[in-house]
Amino acid sequence: MSSLRKWLDGEDAYPLRAEWTAPPSKKKRTRKTRADDRRQLEGFLRVYAVCAVVLCIGLILCLVLGALRLPAFASPGNPTDNEVVRRYVGSAEAETGAENVVAGMILNYRGFDTFGESCVLFVALCCVELLLWATKPALREEAAASRKEAPRDAILARVCTLAVPCVLVYGLCILFNGHLSPGGGFSGGAVLGAALILFAVAFGGERVRRFFTQRVFDAVRISGLLLYAVLFGVYVYLGANGIESGLARVLVQIIDVAVGLVVMSTMYGFYAFYTKGEL
């Protein structure tokens, strides 16, 4: 445990070093063998580069020849235009209550898959947080130094005063309207996260931290994931595709918002951990 702690603080590059020691090298390296090694390495790198180029030319040839033999692009009789599409488009509105078939499909027919994706995002954010834990003090010093020497960009701030509200409203619109128009959880959450990043770049992370504290951030990302799990469980328990269209629409919309919350907090979290190592 203490070795993990050390690794998190960046003191020790390898927490398992105590368990794994390098085998002692057998012969003493002389200058001659070292020069030999270098020559060997250079030769190997040359052969490696040639092999890589040849491999990639071969890959291009194979793939392009394969691509030319594919069924023609965008023609109606393609093998991809099959009964699955007809089933999805034909009964999506009745079964999921979503007019946007893409949103309805990823939240209903492929709901478990999307839940897995949300978990991937959540875990990726946790990993980034752990990895950049060690850089927190250095980042804090850097931020203080850069704040002292360079004031905020006036042009950027003025443009962002106009742009950020528009982007936020657009993001909220496509998040809440995702089942009726293009958009949905992933797009809306991504736009909202980008708007928050823009705001933080223009006015400084402290302004964001006023309303988006560590506690709020944790609550948002965990409650998003939990909301998804619980509501999707309820949805499946009630009969999944068989339930009434109006109820399905409400459930899909709330699940959509939950995905949006997870995506938004992940996107802003990446930015925050990269700049400050904390929120």
Binding site: P182, G184, V191, A194, M267
Partner: peptide, 12 residues
């Protein structure tokens, strides 16, 4: 004809 993708790609 994939507007959802266009929005996500532009933002992300």
């Amino acid at each position: 004809q994939a507007p959802d993708l266009a929005i996500t790609e532009a933002a992300v």
